[in-house]
Design a protein around this nucleic acid. Structure first.
Length: 156
DNA sequence: GCCAACGTTGGC
DNA sequence: GCCAACGTTGGC
């Protein structure tokens, strides 16, 4: 099983929205690197749900990949801003996965994440990173959840 | 709203 | 295949 991180702007679609709808097709990804990560996902993989362009930005929850990659419907919709006239149904250019909520987390801000030494090499925290879908290592995943445990149940 | 850091496009 | 111009992302 692999771990991932998905970015979304909470003004558009935040973690609470995922809890409300219970299942969401992760469409609209139009970057090849991000798409390739989507295509690498397997059902059952877990992902951090990251709020970008927010105040503060950070990890807001955990979601699960409920369906592995299949063609993104919006690429064929001329009315959509994600329409891609160069994509064909025989050879769809863009993919999406379905995600379902797992649990909300107390918002882990970028500042908090940067303060954890275990995350010093995390892709998300690297300068200039703009990827909206990226892998998370098992060590990073555990370090973040350990931190969540430490703030929700302080050591006695 | 600014702007740095990318990614994409298209002329050549 | 280079690279300038342009568009987008996302923190601040």
């Amino acid at each position: 099983m692999a771990y991932w991180l998905l970015k979304s702007e909470p003004d558009v679609f935040g973690y609470p929205d995922l809890e409300r709808v219970q299942k969401e097709p992760w469409n609209g990804v139009r970057n090849y690197q991000a798409r390739n990560h989507l295509r690498s996902m397997q059902e059952g993989d877990l992902a951090f749900f990251y709020h970008s362009n927010s105040n503060p930005s950070g990890i807001a929850g955990i979601c699960k990949i409920a369906r592995s990659a299949y063609p993104d419907n919006l690429q064929f919709d001329p009315e959509s801003k994600y329409f891609d006239p160069k994509s064909t149904s025989e050879n769809p250019r863009w993919s999406m996965v379905d995600v379902v909520p797992v649990r909300a987390l107390p918002l882990l801000s970028l500042e908090t994440l940067r303060s954890l030494p275990e995350l010093s090499d995390m892709l998300l925290l690297r300068k200039g990173n703009r990827l909206s879908v990226m892998p998370v290592t098992e060590a990073e995943w555990k370090a973040i959840l350990d931190h969540v445990d430490s703030i929700s149940a302080p050591a006695t």
